[in-house]
Amino acid sequence: MTELLRIENLTIAPVSAPEQLLVKHVSFALESGKTTCIVGESGSGKSLTALAVMGLLSDQLQRQSGSIIFQGKDIAGWNNQQLRKIRGKQIGMIFQEPMTSLNPVLTVGYQIGESLTEHLGLKGAVLKAKVASLLQQVGIPPERANSYPDELSGGQRQRVMIAMSIACEPAMLIADEPTTALDVTVQAQILKLLDELKSRMQMGMLFITHDFGVVADIADNVVVMFRGEVVESGPVNQVLSHPQHPYTKALLDCVPDAEGLKPLKPIDYAWLKTGVAA
């Protein structure tokens, strides 16, 4: 087991309101060949944490403290020029909405090839063959390289995004809610594909989601975030079966189960704060 990424004491706040912390002293680690899920509700800071790792925070936000150690190097202070060398090459990224992440006027083959040319200098027939093999790996017929994004279904577009993100065989893949916009049967296929690619390529995967069902399917380790803080983290079985923090317990109680055996319990925020039921 090699440690791929370690985030220590990461704190993020708006430039205009430095005292209003959006991510508070977050620390966790990710190993090669493993999946760490960050799970939380909207506003928990899960996406900001992922954006910070890639150095993609908006100008209005600043990292007040913390280190982001990727393959032994602290990349937290790196400028854009330095980060561009590893983004897409050593760190792949997939986002929620495949349609807005793809350029509508370029063929998907061209878009998959871009990072191969940029980072590895591939051209011509070699590039074409590599694009075809990537499409095959994600389950799309290679001749679709000449298709435009609008000619593909939502699931196929997300497969194209995955092909782009793994093109340079990155050591780490960051996936921010990659299946949230997809139908449930397509979601199951995409999760399976990501899990297989992770194992085959020994990537570390940082997977952002709000869905505990997805966590159960894909995670090795879980980081639960609530209002900018990590409230609990650990191996997936431990966190899902024996949650320690009251928020994790309460959040799990809100998730309807497919068997309909468990009564739904909304979160009692007063109890969370004081430990006394309202």
């Binding site: 449930v184 049967t185 979601q187 199951a188 999760l191 869905d211 069902g213 997805v214 399917d217 497919a258």
Partner: peptide
């Protein structure tokens, strides 16, 4: 059946 089997968290991948 396919729809029910696709529910996340219902069965492991």
């Amino acid at each position: 059946r396919n729809l029910l089997n696709s529910i996340p968290g219902r069965k492991s991948l």
